[in-house]
């Protein structure tokens, strides 16, 4: 029971940061989603030690463990868009896969080349 209360209180805190992020987005006319602004805020607060790790640990851990649950209603919404994948729409699956392969290969290759160079300079 105690754990449930802790999670709920921490969730309210996360919700507050999300709300704050959304307000910042509106006031400054930013394109970055309010939730991502909230993420950056929380990371800054944790890094500056203005927020203790223990204040968010359980709530954030709970939400991340059950992340898929929170987007079930959104993915179910595909019923309204199923028609897009008919016929020519099949091409979108190929585009998505090909683009994903490029992202995986190039981002990884750049990171690996850089770390090898760094390691090399220490030797």
């Amino acid at each position: 029971m105690n754990k449930a209360v802790t999670i709920i209180v921490q969730l309210i805190g996360l919700y507050f940061l999300y709300w704050l992020g959304s307000v910042i987005q509106k006031v400054l006319h930013l394109f970055i989603p309010g939730s991502v602004i909230g993420l950056i805020l929380l990371f800054a607060l944790l890094s500056l030690k203005l927020v203790s790790e223990r204040w968010v640990q359980k709530g954030a851990g709970f939400m991340i463990t059950h992340l898929p649950f929170f987007f079930i209603p959104a993915t179910v919404g595909i019923v309204s868009y199923a028609y897009i994948f008919k016929g020519k729409g099949m091409l979108l699956i190929a585009i998505g896969m090909f683009s994903t392969a490029l992202v995986m290969g190039l981002s990884g290759a750049v990171a690996q080349k850089m770390i090898r160079r760094m390691d090399g300079s220490y030797e």
Binding site: Y15, E53, I64, F70
Partner: peptide
């Protein structure tokens, strides 16, 4: 009608991703 309540929790879930990053 019920789904939007769950949808509403997506925002705080994203905020929570700051924790593993930290």
């Amino acid at each position: 009608i019920g789904g939007q309540w769950i949808d509403h929790l997506l925002g705080p879930a994203v905020v929570g991703l700051a924790y593993p990053l930290y």
